[in-house]
Computed example of a mutant assay.
Amino acid sequence: MKDEEKLIFNNLKEQYIHFGLPADGIDEKTDFAIHNLKDVHTILPYQSLIFRPNFFSFVFVKNGYGRYTTDELVFDTVPGTIYFTNPGHYKSYNWHKIEEIYLITLSESFLKENVHKDIFEEFPFLLAETVQPRVLSSDAFSEFEQLYLLINKEYQNHSAYRNRIIGNLFVVLLLKIKEYFWKDYNPIYEGNRSSQIVKEFKRMLEKHYRDLGNGLIEKAYRVQDYADAQSLHPNYLSNVIKIKTGKPIGTWITEKTISEARALLQNSTIAIKEIAYRLGFSESTHFSNYFKKHTGLSPVLFRKQHIAATS
């Protein structure tokens, strides 16, 4: 899969541009997008290349037919299908009929900043490695349709409160998904040994950075610490994570560090020096350089821009 491994996209606009699909309706200013696939796939049938997105996807098929592939999972999409994937999986899809199929994509940062700061604690099914699709009756599906159409309306409305409104509506959407499908779901107990290793690592990573952000612990974990917690050799853990998710363990840790840093800069008045310390940096200058390397902005400028956008 050498050529296919190069098809890694950080957002939907990047993916659509690469695939030669219209991307004008996708706002670059937010890590969130929603649209009816009918407006994108004007020529059918359509078969995508194999790719790996670094964002969450939610598909709501009111009226359409096709086929989805996520890693080893292959299924037909029919009216009433609801399906989602999280970052790191290899995917492809084809469509041969589309009337109303809404796709929502969003980043982990958007989830934490606008939906729920403890998003994976409240909705653990989002950590599921591979999720089986669900097909609902038309009455049950209509409950979700009302929500995603409201979200779409707000997405088209470029108000100063757009992300907050979308975030609150998305909480309701996730609660409905939890109510219908995953009320008692615990992703840690699903799958084979490798899958359990990945899920436990994700759970630990999320809890550890939440505790760091809340100031409950002082030391950032190393790969060795995550390995020791599961009684594994660090090289073995690293190999399992890379093979199963497509991302090195260091990338998972980096992305989590940046996500938590963004959340703290946006949602608190904690001094940048204190944020650096909480996230395991001995010097605030090291944190500032690290943050700028991965976001293009210094922590100071990132916070100023957020304040200006919300004031």
Rank of each mutant, 00 (worst) to 15 (best):
D3G: 06
N10D: 14
K13P: 01
K13T: 07
E14F: 11
E14Q: 15
I17A: 12
L21I: 05
L21A: 08
L21T: 05
P22R: 04
D24V: 01
I26N: 03
A33S: 15
A33Y: 15
H35I: 04
L37S: 07
D39E: 14
I50G: 01
G64T: 05
V78H: 09
P79I: 09
K91Y: 01
S92P: 00
K97A: 08
E99M: 02
I104A: 05
T105E: 15
D118H: 14
F120N: 11
P124R: 08
L127Q: 11
A128V: 02
A128R: 02
T130P: 00
V135I: 13
D139Y: 04
E143V: 06
F144I: 02
E145Y: 04
E145H: 03
L150R: 11
Y155F: 15
S159F: 00
Y161I: 05
I165N: 04
G167V: 08
L169R: 02
V172N: 02
L173D: 00
K176S: 06
K178P: 00
Y180H: 12
Y180W: 02
N186H: 11
Q196M: 14
V198W: 03
V198M: 06
L205G: 06
K207N: 14
I217G: 10
A220V: 12
S238Q: 02
S238I: 02
T245C: 04
K247N: 09
P248T: 04
T251R: 13
I253M: 14
T254D: 14
I258T: 12
E260S: 13
E260R: 13
T269K: 12
R278Y: 08
S282D: 12
E283M: 11
S284C: 00
N289T: 13
Y290C: 09
V300F: 11
R303S: 11
Q305D: 08
Q305M: 13
H306N: 08
A309I: 01
A309Y: 04
T310S: 13
S311V: 07
